[in-house]
């Protein structure tokens, strides 16, 4: 259970206060929509630890995570783009998930298993910059798989993908979330995407997160 309790946040130079209060269970997905600048991505930054709230708590299974620095939070994050290091191979990009030796047999097979799960078996040695948008998102997902953190944050992950690719990635994502019981939050402007994923819908309105 991920609980975001009475979180209040405002940027240094703005007067606007943003409020968030909700919870979600294992394997559950919520989708957040709202106009741009409404404070959707701010929530993700707060959970990931890039921003600190002025008030409130964030707990995962009863444990406080606000006190953890970003790199120690049980969080995987995925953006619309810039998820991969373009000058590295797919394998290397995924290997960044594990801190151990990327060339060990164990890691090698973990990486190729993850690639198989996202349907990119033979892409390990490709340069990330040579992949299509959909393929890049799949590689990023493979890395998420390997890290297997309980919280998955997605910031407009389907934007820029064509309809069919988006559908494929959505199906894959849905399957993985179920399988690995990730607490998943998607920021999206597209309600249809949210419905396909079977997500609970929320909207940022007047700087407050509200369920629809």
């Amino acid at each position: 259970m991920l609980e975001v309790k009475n979180i209040c946040f405002h940027y240094e130079k703005q007067k606007q206060d943003y409020y968030y209060d909700f919870s979600l269970g294992e394997g559950e997905i919520i989708a957040i929509s709202g106009v741009s600048g409404a404070g959707k991505s701010t929530l993700l930054d707060l959970i990931a630890g890039f921003l600190m709230p002025n008030k409130g708590e964030i707990n995962l299974n009863g444990q406080d995570i606000l006190s953890l620095p970003p790199e120690r939070r049980p969080v995987s994050i995925l953006f619309q783009s810039d998820n991969l290091f373009e000058h590295l191979s797919v394998n290397k990009n995924i290997a960044l998930a594990s801190l151990g030796n990327e060339n060990s047999n164990e890691n090698q097979s973990a990486i190729s298993n993850a690639l198989k799960d996202v349907g990119l078996e033979n892409f390990g040695n490709q340069l990330a910059s040579n992949l299509s948008g959909g393929q890049k998102q799949r590689v990023a997902l493979a890395r998420t798989l390997l890290r297997n953190k309980s919280i998955l944050l997605l910031d407009e992950p389907f934007t820029g993908l064509d309809e069919k690719t988006a559908k494929d990635v959505q199906a894959l994502l849905k399957k993985l979330v179920k399988q690995h019981k990730w607490h998943t939050i998607i920021v999206t402007h597209n309600k249809h995407d949210a419905n396909v994923m079977g997500a609970k819908n929320y909207v940022m309105k007047d700087a407050v997160l509200q369920s629809e």
């Binding site: 810039d82 960044l96 890395r143 910031d155």
Partner: peptide
């Protein structure tokens, strides 16, 4: 790019890796 930094930060890249993967390029 901020997104790149965030990804790297949540991947907990070591200072050396951060330098080699983000800064050097």
């Amino acid at each position: 790019a901020a997104q790149k930094l965030k990804i790297a930060q949540s991947l907990a890249l070591s200072p050396l890796k951060r330098f080699l993967l983000l800064d050097l390029p």
